[in-house]
């Protein structure tokens, strides 16, 4: 019985170690449709619950775009995001309005990326995960799967 406890810890730690953040199997279709058209349907673990809450409350001016959704989808998406949100202490402050790319964890994970890469037209924006992380749509953010050769370690 005792061996189960370390095993459980290992199982919890593994996804973080491997940078695997696939969308849960019960992800509502509304999340993929509404949040995955203009940008990647970001893994909910990338922001804390309070940050998702304020993001969902401000969709009519979502970084300059009107991304408002109908009430039913809005409730469904907000509940999903908050249920699967990341650990606030590990993510750090994401600013206001919250930006995944400003969270301390994101910044730390990308601190070796030179500025010229962010300006590359193929990347265009730090929000464009798929530009470098070729398995981003499947939740794969491993450093081994970076597309641009110069960025590969």
């Amino acid at each position: 019985m005792k061996f189960l406890i370390p095993l459980a810890f290992l199982a919890m730690a593994l996804p973080a170690l491997a940078d695997r953040m696939p969308l849960p199997a019960n992800t509502p279709a509304s999340f993929k449709a509404e949040c995955g058209s203009c940008h990647l349907a970001y893994p909910p673990a990338l922001l804390a619950a309070k940050d998702w809450k304020s993001t969902m409350a401000g969709l009519s001016d979502h970084f300059g775009s009107d991304a408002a959704v109908d009430a039913k989808s809005g409730q469904e998406i907000a509940a999903f995001l908050e249920r699967n949100a990341g650990n606030a202490a590990k993510l750090g402050n994401a600013g206001s309005p919250p930006r995944i790319t400003l969270s301390a964890r994101f910044v730390r994970k990308h601190d070796e990326v030179p500025a010229k890469f962010w300006r590359d037209p193929r990347i265009k924006s730090a929000a464009n995960c798929e530009a470098c992380h070729r398995d981003a749509t499947k939740g794969g953010f491993s450093e081994r799967d970076i597309i641009i050769p110069e960025l590969r370690h």
Binding site: C38, R122, N128, E130
Partner: peptide
């Protein structure tokens, strides 16, 4: 195309 802000295809 490519989204002018986010860069998404």
């Amino acid at each position: 195309g490519q989204h002018a802000v986010t860069g998404k295809a």
